[in-house]
Design a protein around this nucleic acid. Structure first.
Lengths: 297, 297
DNA sequence: TTGAAAGCGGTACCAG
DNA sequence: CTGGTACCGCTTTCAA
């Protein structure tokens, strides 16, 4: 089923069918109606490959994600998708499952599809891939890795680098807390790299009979659901996934009306969410939480 | 960057470049090497749209999912993808977010891409969509909805229909247990439609001081992670996502060597996973658990 | 307002 | 073993 069949059935040329299907309002109303009916009757669906090929440009974005099961990544994907749809773009997603060969082959696939832009929300990132992507001339966004280039934008969250590679996980947090307290050092606050760890810390403190936040304050990072429902509810840094998705779209598909992000490093400032695990806040400015303020150099 | 550029650089025709890139081993080794180098130097990536168009058929499968965040659906996706990769197919996924307009537009997109097959793991399913899919002549698989047709295969899990629309959720399970026990009826077993409910039931029983499984046995359905880690560990029906993914692939891309599934209704038989929440099993056959035996009429 | 025809970037058949 | 060349289905001038 192709344009030609529709054209024939409607008694017009393929050019006219194409015009109708693309809403080029130069077509006479009666002709238009006839074409539409023919398309309907034939159950016609335009071949998108032919379309892309003829147009020479696409309105499809690609996104590579290490693990779609991770709610944090998933939220970013969803935000990107919704921004894209709002502007008439599609987004196709590839789950790399933390495997770098998979990442590479997915990237090639996307390039082969000539996507208009590509976002990589992945941690496994090797030199080969970066080279391939850089050479592709396709607008790229990396999340939390890489450095900006002509066609490469990076988005990263502003947390202290030193914390990134420490002990991790629920058990890890608990153990770290035990060691910390065992060392005789008695802090007034424990700041964890993510909410999982923080919950582990909370548990250990509870078992040692240390009250939170009266004796020690605890904070997490990410603002996952669990943070809200544990006891005491966790004070944490909220990372604005919604905004990250929008920024990614904006970097990939620049809007002349808006600030140009492409090729830069975008730093996301988390918002502090104060709950029960911390004492009264003195720094009013931080507590007010400037909503994921964007800092771009 | 196109075939022509590579051909020119290598001093051959586009036909030869195409042969090399498609591994048609009729090309002289030296020529082949020259072409490969040219492609490499030019950072050439074949345009997949042109390819699909010329070939007239694709090796891409589509999958529509209501909610990718749901581990159960996600597992099916992953299984399908791995089966597909093993046979040289790609799979592109669309998350419909439980919205039927989104489902419809994603379906159209897939049809426009001329996917070789389409799987719909969705609950929101209206007549329009079914019509569009049926008319498309593309091989389709529905999970847990719809009825078989010429090009439509259905996969469903064999659970008692009556249980499907009952009370649901953790709280629901707890409440149901309370009512049940309050009614004076004292069963020897409670069989829940899913693991969530079962965990709720367990909690209620514990509060009422009823020992599981000594006084009452409890079973769930799905075998989610939580089932393994709650106390007592839950006896449940495991639904073989891995197998479901393979069956979907097999229905979409029939293998002449294997059983033909296309256009039929495939019934998945869950496997019983016996843990601590049930008493000793008398039915040895069930306990042995015939691994998700496939029942196709 | 409409039609004819030249691509878009590959594939595959037919010659040589 | 390699080249020439009709397509594949759609978009987009250019003319009429």
């Amino acid at each position: 089923m192709n344009l030609n069949a529709v054209a024939k059935k409607a008694g017009v040329s393929t050019a006219t069918v194409s015009r109708v299907l693309n809403d080029l309002d130069v077509v006479k109303t009666s002709t238009r109606a006839r074409v539409l009916k023919a398309a309907q009757d034939l159950n016609y669906h335009p071949n998108l490959h032919a379309r892309s090929l003829a147009r020479g440009k696409s309105r499809t974005l690609g996104i590579l994600i290490s693990n779609m099961e991770n709610p944090f990544f998933f939220d970013i994907f969803r935000a990107l998708e919704s921004a894209a749809h709002a502007r008439g773009y599609e987004v196709v997603v590839a789950n790399t499952d933390y495997r770098s060969e998979q990442l590479l082959s997915s990237a090639r696939l996307m390039i082969g599809w000539r996507v208009a832009g590509l976002a990589a929300i992945v941690s496994e990132m090797d030199a080969d891939l970066v080279q391939v992507l850089t050479d592709s001339r396709i607008p790229i966004v990396f999340y939390d890795v890489g450095t900006p280039r002509k066609n490469i934008t990076t988005v990263r969250v502003d947390y202290r680098k030193g914390m990134k590679n420490g002990t991790d996980g629920l058990e890890g947090g608990r153990e770290a807390a035990r060691e910390l307290l065992g060392s005789g050092f008695h802090p007034t606050a424990i700041i964890c790299v993510n909410d999982f760890m923080a919950v582990g810390v909370l548990r250990e403190l509870r078992e040692q009979g240390i009250r939170v936040p009266q004796e020690i304050s605890v904070t997490g990072f990410d603002n996952i659901k669990l943070a809200e429902f544990c006891s005491p509810a966790l004070t944490t840094a909220h990372i604005p996934r919604e905004q990250i998705g929008q920024i990614i779209f904006q970097s990939l598909v620049p809007d002349p009306e808006k600030e140009q992000l492409t090729g830069r490093e975008i730093v996301i400032e988390p918002e502090l969410v104060v709950r029960e695990s911390t004492g009264p806040v003195r720094n009013t400015r931080a507590a007010a939480g400037n909503h994921g303020k964007l800092v771009a150099d």
